[in-house]
Amino acid sequence: MFENLDIFKMASGMARHAVTRQEVIAKNIANADTPEYRAKDIASFADAYDTTSSDTKMRTTRAGHVLDSTATPSGYDLFDAPGATSPNGNTVSLETEMMKSSQVRHEHELALSVYKSSMNILRTSIGRK
Rank of each mutant, 00 (worst) to 15 (best):
S86Q: 10
A48F: 08
K100T: 08
A84F: 14
L67F: 05
S102G: 15
A81G: 00
M58D: 11
S117G: 13
P73T: 05
T96F: 10
T85W: 00
H106I: 15
V114A: 00
T60P: 01
S117C: 04
R62L: 06
E107V: 07
S101H: 13
A63E: 13
T91L: 04
D50T: 11
T61S: 14
S53T: 12
T51D: 15
V114D: 00
S69Q: 14
K57S: 11
Y49V: 04
F45G: 02
A63N: 09
A81E: 01
I121D: 03
D68I: 09
K116N: 08
E95G: 11
V114W: 01
D68C: 09
Q103G: 06
H106R: 15
Y49S: 10
T72H: 04
D77V: 12
Y115W: 09
I121Q: 05
T72N: 04
S44Q: 01
T91P: 02
R62A: 08
D55Q: 05
V66K: 07
S69L: 14
V92Y: 00
T85F: 00
P73W: 06
I121A: 08
S74A: 15
H106D: 12
S93Q: 09
A46K: 08
D50Q: 12
L67G: 09
S44R: 03
L110S: 09
I121M: 10
G89M: 14
A46N: 02
T96S: 14
T52Q: 14
K57W: 07
S113T: 10
S102A: 14
E107W: 07
F45M: 03
Y76K: 03
F79S: 05
Y115G: 01
R62E: 08
L110K: 08
V104H: 00
E109S: 11
T70H: 12
H108Q: 00
T60M: 07
G83E: 05
T51N: 13
S117R: 11
Y76G: 02
D80M: 05
G89D: 15
T96M: 12
A81Y: 01
T72R: 05
A81C: 00
V104Q: 01
E109R: 07
N120D: 14
A43I: 02
R105N: 13
L67Y: 09
I121W: 03
G83K: 06
V104W: 01
N88W: 11
I42M: 06
K116A: 08
H108I: 00
M119D: 10
H65Y: 15
D77R: 10
A81W: 01
D80Q: 05
A63M: 07
A63C: 02
D80N: 07
P82W: 10
T60I: 02
V114M: 02
M119W: 06
D80F: 05
E109P: 02
P73Y: 08
A84T: 15
D50C: 03
K116W: 01
S113R: 05
S69R: 14
S117D: 13
K100L: 13
D55R: 06
R105M: 07
M98A: 15
D47F: 06
A111I: 02
N120L: 13
A46M: 04
G89S: 14
T70W: 10
M119G: 04
V66M: 04
A63D: 11
D80K: 07
M119E: 09
S117T: 13
D80S: 04
G89C: 13
H108P: 00
S69D: 12
I121Y: 05
L78T: 07
S102P: 04
H106F: 15
T85E: 03
